[in-house]
Every structure is written in structure tokens, then in C-alpha cells.
Amino acid sequence: MTHVISLVSSKGGCGKTTTALNLGVAFAERGRRVVVVDLDPQGAVGLALDRPDGEWPGLAEHVIEGRPVAGLVVETRLPGFCLLPRGRLDPVDTCSYEAFLHSSGKVREVVRELSAGRDYVLLDTPSGVGAISRAALAASDWALLPLQAEPLALRSIGQALRVIEHVSREENRDLRLLGILPTMVQVRDEASFNVLRTAWARLGGVLESVVPRAPVFLRASEAGLPVSFLAGRVTPEARRFEQIVIELETLIAESAGGGEVDERPQRDLL
């Protein structure tokens, strides 16, 4: 069974694309077959990988020219991990593109096609809870919310949750909240740590795993690579997304009443 996960947030700059890419890599490194779909008209996935804007054809070519989705998927050097880029969308056409994706059912069609033979489809959405995010949620099994550990993000997360609730009520009863993932956490900063503590104490569905604010993410962004692909010492952050993937797969398995959950019997030490 394929799990379709939308990464959404009402606030920009919270790490959706970084999370989508690094999670996708982490899933693939555990042997899963994953595709990351760039639904952001800005083409954030390609930009995160330091590709020239408009280099890759992608979803836009499928929508505008009718090119088959299969021929637009970009295979990577990591087995099982591939991308469906935004495509060569003219920024001038962003409004029309958003409206079309929302009203046409195209996102659901594409997701259905990409799901064949894959374990995960990750939908990277634009910031805000507008038309494309709605279309993504309507086509998804799960919503994952990156929550930047700073006060404004915590104040606004209710808006994204409201939209998820509405879509799950009115448009897609299969949609569920997979989790709220704290990102850019600075445990030594009082304000950032307060946000984390408040989220854990007050919100439902907050993951135990967090993504810290760390220099390695800037280095990875500069190199146009996922963190685990950087040369040099393997940092804790490089393994962070492995932990997140384990937590997410455990949640998914538990929601289905079993599945592949890491379990072991109690052992005696002495």
C-alpha cells in the first residue's frame, strides 16, 4: 500500500522542502520506494537541489502539454528515490496553475499514477494553505506539518490545522494528521525552547523527533544536497531524518493496527 503524505504549513520558511527531500532520502535509504512531488509553483525542490530554474520539465509540462507523467519523473542516484519536478512553469502563470490544480482533480490523478509500485509519495506544497495545498490534502492519506520553533509559527499553526480538519471532513475522509514536526529547534534559546515545550504540552500529534537549527543544513543547501549526502564527518543531523522516518513508519503501522513495527521481548541483563 502506498502512503501519500502532504507536507503543509501556513507559514513559509519552516522547512517543508528541506524536510520533504531529506525524509524522502531517508525513506529510500531504508529500502522504500519514494517519489517527492514538487507542487510548489516556485519550484522549491529544484532550487533546494541547486538546479537552474526551469532546467527540468515536470508537472507543468504534464498539465500544459499533456506529456505523460512517467516520462517526467527524474531518477536519482539513490535507488528507489525519484522526483517529479515542478517543470518549466512561467512564474507569470502561477495563479492559473494554482487554480487549475485545485479545480481539475489533476493532483489526485498524478498521485494515483505515481503510487504504482511505490511505498511513499511525498507532496511538497507551497507555503500557506491555498489552492494547491488544498488539492494536495484532498489527494493524500496523511498530513505532516513542519512547525518552526519560533512564536509566529506556533501562533499560526492553527490555520493549517483548521484546513486539514475541513478537508478531512468535507473532501477526503481518509486524510489524517500524521504529525507535527518541530523544525529549526534551538534548545538553548529560551523563545525557541518555549515553543517546543508549548507544542509538546498543548498540541496533539507532535512528534518526539525534532529537527534542530544547525549549520549543516546551510552547508547542505549551499551544496544542493540532502544532509546525508555531504562529505565529511557524519553529523547527528544526518541521522536525524532516519529517526524521523522510523517514528513516522511506526505511527503509520500503529494506525493500521500492526504491520512492521520494531518490537523485541524483554531481556534480562543479569
Binding site: L154, R155, S156, I157, G158, L161, R162, I164, E165, L177, I180, T198, R202, L203, G204, G205, V206
Partner: peptide, 10 residues
């Protein structure tokens, strides 16, 4: 704001 988010998220 957090109260609203808390209720919906739970």
C-alpha cells in the same frame, strides 16, 4: 491561538 490549535490537533 494555541488553544484553537490544541483543540483541532488533538
Amino acid at each position: 491561538n494555541v488553544d484553537v490549535a490544541a483543540a483541532i490537533s488533538r
